[in-house]
Computed example of a mutant assay.
Amino acid sequence: MDQMRKPYEKRNANTLYYTVSIILGTVALSYGSVPLYKTICQQTGWGGQPIKSAAHGGTLDPNDTDSIAAKLTPVTTSRRLRITFAGSTSDILPWKFTPQQREVRVLPGETALAFYTATNMSKEEDIIGVATYSVTPAQVAPYFSKIQCFCFEEQRLNKGETVDMPVFFYIDPEFLKDPNMKGIDTITLNYTFFKAKYDKHGHLTPIPAPY
């Protein structure tokens, strides 16, 4: 059995090393003034915000291969969960924003990649947008771990431009041990894009939180 697990552990460790490097690069390039509500929501799961913490896979130690293997090894004895996707924009943002897939089915511990497509419908100006996200049912948020996504970061689209935006995620296997998750088979990931606004100092100002 141990011999069978080793390939999975190695593959999952390589996957994490790759995605951690992407995250670090993204953070280094992102805006310096991060809204306080973003940090609060990600640490508490408040309002259906997926948690990004060591306890839920958000900041796994790349050197801890046992922890990585435990988090990112599919639980094959579990039922598959139906993950659906939704997207919308604020009234003042002239973008078209939709998920490319209606749903995916995953096992807890199994990584999945999904895509959204955004188009700047304006024919006159380039526009910067910023997205918030939420998970429903809200109580699932502590177990919905996003390894890589485009949320809370500036997304600049030239007039008429269309881009694909990836989301790399997994459901923490601890989901299966929580009696409150019993009977939950469908989880929805929702994004809402807002037009980025800046204060007089040129810093990105907080966008409305979805709760």
Rank of each mutant, 00 (worst) to 15 (best):
Q3I: 12
K6F: 13
K6L: 15
K6P: 00
E9K: 13
K10C: 07
N12Q: 15
N12M: 15
L16C: 05
T19P: 02
V20R: 14
I23L: 12
I23Y: 11
L24E: 14
L24I: 08
T26G: 13
L29C: 10
S30W: 05
Y31R: 06
S33D: 12
V34Q: 04
P35M: 06
I40P: 02
C41N: 15
Q42I: 08
Q43W: 13
Q43H: 12
G45Q: 03
G45Y: 03
G47Y: 06
P50F: 04
P50R: 04
S53L: 03
S53D: 13
A54V: 12
G57I: 01
T59N: 13
T59I: 09
T59F: 14
L60G: 02
D61C: 12
D61W: 08
D61R: 06
N63K: 11
D64E: 06
D64H: 09
D64L: 05
S67C: 06
S67V: 05
I68S: 02
I68P: 00
L72Q: 09
L72F: 09
P74S: 01
V75N: 14
T76G: 05
T77L: 04
T77C: 03
T77Q: 12
R80W: 01
L81F: 07
I83M: 14
I83V: 14
S90K: 05
I92Y: 06
L93F: 07
P94T: 07
W95I: 00
W95M: 02
T98A: 05
T98C: 00
Q100A: 09
Q101E: 13
Q101R: 07
R105V: 06
T111M: 14
L113H: 15
Y116C: 05
A118I: 02
T119Q: 08
N120L: 03
M121Q: 15
E124I: 09
E125W: 01
A131V: 06
A131Y: 05
T132A: 09
S134G: 07
S134E: 08
T136K: 06
P137Y: 01
P137E: 03
V140T: 08
V140Q: 00
V140D: 00
A141S: 09
S145E: 02
S145Q: 08
K146E: 10
Q148W: 12
F150T: 11
F150P: 01
F150M: 10
F152C: 11
E153H: 14
E154K: 10
R156E: 13
R156M: 10
N158M: 12
G160I: 14
V163R: 14
V163W: 07
M165E: 07
P166I: 06
P166T: 08
P166R: 08
V167Q: 09
F169M: 10
I171F: 03
D172L: 06
E174M: 11
F175K: 04
L176I: 06
K177S: 13
D178Q: 07
N180L: 12
M181W: 00
M181Q: 00
M181R: 00
G183C: 07
G183W: 02
I184E: 00
T186S: 13
T186L: 08
I187K: 01
N190I: 03
T192I: 11
F194D: 03
A196E: 04
K197P: 01
D199C: 09
D199L: 10
K200T: 12
H201E: 15
H203T: 12
H203S: 15
H203E: 15
T205N: 04
P208E: 09
